[in-house]
C-alpha cells in the first residue's frame, strides 16, 4: 500500500509540474497570439499596360506599449553588377563585374520611431533589420578586404536607392490606441521598378530594445494581359518576336514615308 501511495504522490507531483509548465507556456503564447496581426490591403499587384507602381496599406493590431517595425523584402538572392573604376589613375570605365550574394532585390522599412532608438544592434543583425545589418550578411565577390566590401556595399545601396528599390523610413507608422488594443496603419509606395515575384512583409513588435513578437504576410506581384504576353513572347518565341519587331518597324517607316509624300511634306 505504501508503495502505491508513493507512486500516486509521484504521479500527482509530475502532473502538477506539467500543469504549471503548460500554463506558463500558454500564458506566454497566449499574449503572442492575441496581440500582433498584419494585413496588406493590396496583396496581389497586377502589372498591366498602364502600371506605374502602386500603394500598399498595411494595418493590424498590436500590443499597447510596443513599437513597430515593418520590413518589406524579396527573398535573398544574388545579383551581378558592372563595376566602374579608375584606369591608369585618370579614366573612369567599366573594370569588371561584382557579384552580390544574400541580398534582397527590394528592401524597405517602416517604423513607429527611429529604429536605432528602439532596437539593439544585436537584434537588428539577428532579424536583418536595417540596411547596415543586411550588409553584414551580404557576400560580395571579388573584394580584397573588409573595407573594400563596406565601400562596395555602400555603392550597392546607392544604386538600389536610385531606382527606389531600397528605402528606410522611420516614424511613418501611425498608432491609435483603442481600449486595450493598439491599432496601427502605414501606407507604402510600391515602386514600379520592383519586378514580378513574391515579397514578404514582416511586422516586428519591439519592447525594451528587443523583438518580442513577429507576424508575416505576402505581397504577390505579377504581369497580366498584354504586358505578360509580350514578356513571355520575348523570352519563349524570341525569333518570332524579333521578326515581328523588325517587320513592324519596316512597315512604320514605309507608312510614314507614304503619308509624307501624300501630305506633300516633301517638296
Amino acid at each position: 500500500m505504501t508503495e502505491d501511495r508513493k507512486k500516486t504522490t509521484a504521479i500527482r507531483a509530475m502532473v502538477l509540474v506539467m500543469l504549471v509548465c503548460a500554463s506558463f507556456l500558454l500564458f506566454v503564447n497566449g499574449t503572442a497570439l492575441a496581440a500582433l496581426t498584419i494585413k496588406a490591403n493590396h496583396d496581389h499587384i497586377k502589372i498591366d499596360f498602364f502600371y506605374h507602381g502602386s500603394t500598399v496599406s498595411m494595418r493590424g493590431v498590436s500590443d499597447p506599449g510596443t513599437d513597430l517595425i515593418i520590413k518589406i523584402a524579396s527573398p535573398d538572392g544574388h545579383q551581378a553588377l558592372r563595376q566602374k573604376g579608375k584606369v591608369a589613375g585618370l579614366l573612369w570605365m567599366n573594370v569588371g563585374e561584382l557579384r552580390f550574394e544574400q541580398v534582397p532585390l527590394l528592401y524597405s522599412l517602416h517604423s513607429t520611431r527611429k529604429i536605432s532608438d528602439i532596437l539593439s544592434p544585436e537584434e537588428m543583425d539577428k532579424y536583418a533589420i536595417g540596411l547596415e545589418s543586411v550588409g553584414k550578411k551580404a557576400e560580395i565577390q571579388p573584394v580584397s578586404s573588409e573595407a573594400e566590401k563596406t565601400k562596395w556595399y555602400g555603392e550597392f545601396v546607392k544604386f538600389k536607392e536610385s531606382s527606389n528599390l531600397y528605402a528606410e523610413t522611420s516614424g511613418d507608422i501611425s498608432l491609435n490606441t483603442n481600449g486595450g488594443e493598439q491599432n496601427y496603419y502605414v501606407l507604402s509606395q510600391w515602386p514600379y521598378q520592383a519586378p514580378p515575384g513574391d515579397y514578404i512583409v514582416t511586422i516586428y513588435a519591439v519592447k525594451d530594445k528587443k523583438v518580442v513578437e513577429m507576424a508575416e504576410t505576402k505581397v504577390f506581384v505579377e504581369q497580366v494581359g498584354v504586358v505578360k504576353s509580350f514578356a513571355e513572347m520575348a523570352k519563349n518565341s524570341a525569333a518570332l518576336y524579333g521578326t515581328i519587331s523588325i517587320v513592324a518597324a519596316l512597315a512604320a517607316g514605309f507608312g510614314v514615308g507614304l503619308i509624307f509624300r501624300k501630305g506633300g511634306g516633301a517638296h
Binding site: A80, L81, R82, Q83, K84, G85, L90, L91, W92, M93, N94, E97, L98, W152, E155, F156, K158, F159, S162
Partner: peptide
C-alpha cells in the same frame, strides 16, 4: 571618362 560617375555600379 574623366569625371567621377554618380553611381559606381550599373546593370550588367
Amino acid at each position: 571618362l574623366t569625371l567621377p560617375p554618380a553611381l559606381l555600379l550599373g546593370q550588367s
